[in-house]
Amino acid sequence: MDTTQQRYTDLPIGDRAAFELVCARHGFAPAHFEITGSADPDDIDHHRRLVTVRRGGWAQSYRADEAGYWVRQFETDLTCRFFK
């Protein structure tokens, strides 16, 4: 399994653009968060990755796929004020 940590700038451009839009809608900038990505340890085929978003003392990991569903989950957490 690949244990290389990815940073925000290593994520696919579509994911970054969607993340930036979600942040802007909720009054944040991507710089307000620390974002890292790594291989999903539960994925046998090693096609998925985990994206972890941190802000202050709060952190949440999302399973990332090709459709960018993790960004929608992140927006749900912002709406629920998880990161505030």
Rank of each mutant, 00 (worst) to 15 (best):
S38N: 10
Y62I: 09
V71D: 04
H26F: 15
D43S: 04
E20F: 02
Q73A: 15
P30C: 05
D15W: 08
F33P: 07
L21R: 03
A59S: 12
D43M: 01
D77G: 02
R63L: 09
L21Y: 06
E20P: 03
F28Q: 07
G37H: 02
R7C: 01
R16W: 01
A64S: 14
F74V: 15
R25V: 09
A64D: 00
R81S: 15
D77C: 14
F82V: 08
A24V: 04
T36N: 05
L78V: 14
Y8I: 00
E75P: 03
R55W: 12
A17L: 10
A24N: 08
C23F: 08
G14R: 10
F82T: 15
W58G: 11
L78R: 14
F28C: 06
R16P: 03
R55D: 09
D15L: 03
W58N: 13
T9G: 10
R72I: 14
Y69K: 13
I44T: 05
A24K: 08
M1A: 13
T76E: 09
Y62L: 12
Q6W: 01
G37I: 04
C23V: 02
E34G: 01
L11C: 01
T79H: 09
A31R: 00
I35H: 04
T3G: 01
T79D: 13
M1N: 14
A31W: 04
R25K: 11
T52S: 14
T76V: 12
T3Q: 10
V51E: 09
G14S: 02
C80K: 15
D2R: 14
A24W: 02
R63P: 08
R72W: 13
R25P: 10
R55Q: 15
A29V: 11
D10K: 13
L50G: 00
T36L: 05
G68S: 09
G57S: 02
D10Y: 12
D2M: 04
E75Q: 00
E75D: 00
G27C: 14
R48L: 08
R72Q: 11
T36F: 00
R81C: 13
F83M: 04
R63Q: 15
G37R: 04
Y8M: 03
D42V: 08
R16E: 03
L11A: 11
F28H: 08
R54H: 13
